[in-house]
Write a protein that binds this DNA or RNA. Sequence first.
DNA 1: AACTTATTCAACCGCGGACAC
DNA 2: CGTGTCCGCGGTTGAATAAGT
Length: 346
Amino acid sequence: MGRAPCCDKANVKKGPWSPEEDAKLKSYIEKHGTGGNWIALPQKIGLKRCGKSCRLRWLNYLRPNIKHGGFSEEEDNIICNLYISIGSRWSIIAAQLPGRTDNDIKNYWNTRLKKKLLGKQRKEQHARRVSSLKQEMRKGMSENSMVPNQESNQNPYWPELPVLAAPIPYSNQEPRLNDHASIRKLLIKLGGRFSDDDQMIHEGASLDFPIDISSTTQQIYEHHPVDMLPSASTDTLNIPSYQFTNTQYNMEGEGLDMLQGQNSLPVEIEQMVYSNTQRLDGLEFLYGDELAVNNRSGTACGESVGWGEMSSMVYPPPVASNYEGLQQGMMLQECAFNELRYPGVQ
DNA sequence: AACTTATTCAACCGCGGACAC
DNA sequence: CGTGTCCGCGGTTGAATAAGT
């Protein structure tokens, strides 16, 4: 019964790979493929490594067409948009960026992008606070003005960083959801450019509007056929719908609780993810839209969706190509959000 | 130059679903 | 159908390196 044991952990080398090990693994896989069995592979080629380790080394480093470092601004945008929409599904995000590995993207997000975004947030809040203080001083309201409170802070749910305090407790009124407008503004911003010299967006100011992720990814794939995809990506996209029900992507019910306290993500980012109502068109399956998924796959949950089908789901036609279109989209999203949140109330 | 602190990223670990027996 | 292994994923760790004092 069962299969042979994975590997003799006591007899397995750990740590960094030597060039000789790399060469052995690479040349073998290039000649023979993985043989569909990573566990047996190291023994076949005389490597004292765990199969898992070989797989990781191949996928993240030795595989052809791998890009390391030097993320473009466009890639930043794609990563941020997808993170906002689907969270830390790095393999799915990696599938949108040919040549990038999930590990690379995860590292890039954790070490740079996240800080970049939080830095922008901090900058903006600082500027807002300074201008608010100036206004109050002009009015001669020096009393109490040095202590910012919720009235003077226009964005109570985004306390000045880097205060990574405990998560804001839910009240019966769910204030974080009522503050949709401010979060929406942030999302608009996050959907925009991420360069450090970015103009900050203030109320009434013109928007430097977000990329259209659907057209962007489509463009990328027009230049990168499927065989250029990371080998993991196609597997990754065989995702049964039920995996995504009742996760943090579901805006209602216990799904919301699942993200709470999960990993070390700063509260601000968690809230950003929580509060995002912007679903990517064609990624319905990520949100547990059983109807949408079942209509496409024609089966109950548990059935895999093939790459061909999936790619048409992931790369829909552009929904908005200009600012007005996107503005309309945002309004529709808000209506949809309100309908979801407060059914029947207009 | 020496030391400390911060950053980066390759690799490991553990988990859960899929699948073989 | 139950059990055990394989596979892929996301989170975390820790060594190497860079930057700061």
